[in-house]
Design a protein around this nucleic acid. Sequence first.
DNA 1: TCCAATATTATGC
DNA 2: GCATAATATTGGA
Length: 172
Amino acid sequence: MEKPTKCVHEQEIITPDGNFLARYSEKGLCELAFPTARATAGKASPDAIPGCVRSWHDLTRKALLAALAGHAPERLPPLDFARGTVFQQSVWKALGRIRHGRTTSYGELAREIGRPKAVRALGGACGANPIPVLVPCHRVLGAHNSLGGFSGGLDWKRKLLSREGSWTEAHP
DNA sequence: TCCAATATTATGC
DNA sequence: GCATAATATTGGA
């Protein structure tokens, strides 16, 4: 929507599931990308990054590894949602309140932010979520427990839910 | 400013 | 179960 933040630093996070790419602005973590098969980063000079970014990155790495391992992260880095619209920020904020191991539906979420009929738009907001996994957009299912969709691919959504214990192959 | 697209949902067959 | 209409928000022509 608006102008992108100025200096963004990219850092890689090595996980058993691949290498994630985290991007930081001056305010905090602003984007987290799923592993891409190709080697993207690896050129960021460690000395060129601000100290705060390093501590954020440490938090991010721990949180991400915890989430991938199937348990709730104890602490999250500051998240920078500045690039989203107000509506989207409301959605992402609401997403952050979903407890680990729980799921919700697009309709419920829409009600929670005061726009009960904006379910479709809400789907778009979830898709625009720049920080998957840490902002649990994967815990949102359809009204009849259908999977819906996922930015990084439905495989990831199923995998994440499965590790949290929220997804049994044949769900009720 | 208008138009098309969307990670939905409720209804009807 | 599948097709259809209704709905809010976004991004681009």
